[in-house]
Design a protein around this nucleic acid. Structure first.
Lengths: 253, 253
DNA sequence: CATTTATCGATTTTCTAATATATTTTCGAT
DNA sequence: ATCGAAAATATATTAGAAAATCGATAAATG
């Protein structure tokens, strides 16, 4: 009778939501979102339809539908008859996102651990392994595999909380994760990871597999908070890009 | 520097998000969502474009954009190239939504109370007063003012948590509130409110104004849980409409 | 003369209408 | 009955037209 919670466990290393780009709208959605998250579309930048059409080779309607969905996810904003633009960033928003994510992720992690199960355990171990490999590879070629590392980092955190049995909780938390990822990557564009994130991941996994929910949540909170603090520090020093209104479209003047 | 948190307090009794329907897309978004929440579009019902065009007198593109946004909010689902349909309902989803909302609403309420402030207090009192008047009116004409009562009930709960200072928390919680409202109204279509909800509202407000966050959260949790239990009981007895796939479109056969 | 207000044109966004693509149903043959 | 091919239906997409906004220049006012 129950139908869709396949995101929960079935495909541990699956890509994000909808998976395969069955329609141009889905394709546009993923491409634009990834460009925003990766910083290739700058915060506050105006998103005019024609340039986007050429950039992605996709017609106006699918683009507008994708942008509509992204506006529901808070990645772009749309105002009246004035088109779309990438959501600006700010320190306030960073802390808002961080605290709310802390709340959701903590709850989901605890539930996930309490429910336990063999499938979940092996999914966590597998995801950690894949992430570990990406970390090693990244140490060799620091700039190269960032996209890859991000994918696996996301998969690892998804696997940890994926057993909580609350699709809505996971859904909302994923929105925040993507927002958080955007802030993080704006920093990672210019700096390497500043601390031993790998060890933190291992500690969280060990606590989770030992069914020690309190410790796992504490470590997870610290993990997220440390990241947010690093981002905040960076943003405070380099205020560039903080809600710069129009940027990147300085083609005319 | 900070820009948009006007939803938080500025306009206590404001209607939902985007307010005025500046574009047909916004208009379609609100109309369809309200029809789904009010049960005029049944759970699982297929949403074909042509019938919708005639129903709302809006073209295909704005409709599709509105449906795209609604799919991000979980009100409709879209699968590959097979169009849109109203999200089905289920007991599992009800509890998922309820528990997740409990988490967000509790946190937001506590924050809101802790931060206090005169503006917030008066907004809460005003919203309660408006709700109170609607309750009285509804006792006189039980069926009539349901839409009105729902608006004011939403405004009251919004006012309580609106002072938490976390726009993202409010944003995600609002998604869940609408989902919850949908389940509730599917029941209210056929039954009156089964308990003294008015007294519960008053108790929550009193605790909030007394800055007793623990009590307010406890009462709020109980309030939400009791509602969910009433819905669950009803849905268990009347399994009709639970993921009925295609319904209401039984025009052909 | 400086500042504001009004107006026009260019650009952009929004929407309608028509085309192409995919899916579902129907119908006939095995 | 079951399967497969073809028609019918619906969806997704493109192209083009209508509405609105923005910027610049000109007129009006203090």
């Amino acid at each position: 009778m129950r139908s869709r919670l396949k995101e929960t466990l079935d495909v541990p290393a699956a890509r994000d939501e909808g998976d395969a780009d069955k329609t141009l709208t889905e394709r546009a959605f993923r491409l634009i979102r990834d460009d925003i998250v990766a910083g290739r579309l700058a915060p506050g930048e105006k998103l005019r339809i024609d340039p986007l059409r050429k950039r992605y080779d996709i017609g106006a309607s699918p683009l507008r539908e994708a942008l509509s969905r992204l506006s529901s996810d808070g990645m772009v904003e749309t105002e009246g008859q004035r088109g779309f633009h990438v959501s600006p960033i700010s320190l306030d928003a960073l802390w808002d996102i961080t605290e709310t994510r802390l709340l959701l992720e903590g709850h989901a992690l605890r539930r996930s651990i309490e429910r336990g199960g063999d499938d979940w355990e092996s999914a966590v171990v597998a995801a950690y392994h894949r992430l570990h490999r990406a970390e090693q590879r990244r140490r060799a070629a620091p700039e190269a595999g960032l996209d890859d590392w991000e994918d696996r980092n996301r998969d690892f955190h998804d696997a940890l909380i994926g057993n909580c049995g609350q699709p809505w909780l996971l859904r909302l938390r994923r929105i925040l994760y993507h927002q958080h990822e955007r802030y993080r990557r704006l920093v990672l564009l210019k700096r390497p990871i500043p601390r031993d994130v790998e060890a933190e991941h291992k500690a969280i996994m060990d606590a989770a597999l030992a069914r020690d929910a309190d410790t796992a949540c504490r470590l997870s909170d610290a993990h997220i908070l440390r990241t947010a603090e690093a981002i905040a520090e960076f943003v405070a020093k380099h205020p560039a890009g903080a809600a710069p209104e129009a940027e990147g479209a300085a083609r005319r003047a």
